[in-house]
Amino acid sequence: MATRGRGSACNGGGIVLGAAAVLLIGLLVMSAPPLAEAATYTVGDSGGWRFYAGGWAKGKTFRAGDVLEFKYNAAVHDVAAVDLAAYRSCAVPKGSRKMRSGHDKVTLRKGMHYFICTERGHCQAGMKLAIRAV
Rank of each mutant, 00 (worst) to 15 (best):
residue 72 Y to D: 02
residue 127 M to L: 04
residue 56 W to H: 09
residue 78 D to A: 13
residue 133 A to Q: 09
residue 103 H to R: 15
residue 70 F to A: 04
residue 98 K to W: 04
residue 3 T to R: 15
residue 13 G to L: 11
residue 125 A to M: 14
residue 75 A to T: 14
residue 105 K to F: 08
residue 30 M to Y: 08
residue 19 A to Q: 10
residue 81 A to V: 15
residue 43 V to R: 07
residue 1 M to F: 12
residue 41 Y to N: 05
residue 123 C to D: 02
residue 134 V to E: 12
residue 117 C to Q: 00
residue 81 A to E: 15
residue 111 G to Q: 05
residue 76 V to P: 03
residue 65 G to M: 08
residue 31 S to E: 01
residue 134 V to N: 14
residue 86 A to K: 09
residue 23 L to M: 09
residue 14 G to M: 09
residue 57 A to I: 02
residue 24 L to P: 00
residue 58 K to C: 03
residue 20 A to V: 14
residue 58 K to N: 10
residue 63 R to M: 02
residue 89 S to W: 01
residue 18 G to T: 06
residue 129 L to I: 12
residue 45 D to P: 08
residue 105 K to L: 11
residue 104 D to V: 00
residue 110 K to V: 11
residue 100 R to C: 04
residue 31 S to V: 03
residue 16 V to T: 13
residue 93 P to D: 12
residue 58 K to Q: 07
residue 134 V to T: 08
residue 66 D to C: 08
residue 46 S to C: 05
residue 94 K to V: 08
residue 14 G to F: 01
residue 120 R to Q: 14
residue 18 G to M: 04
residue 94 K to I: 03
residue 41 Y to V: 06
residue 93 P to Y: 09
residue 66 D to L: 12
residue 30 M to H: 15
residue 55 G to S: 06
residue 2 A to N: 01
residue 12 G to V: 08
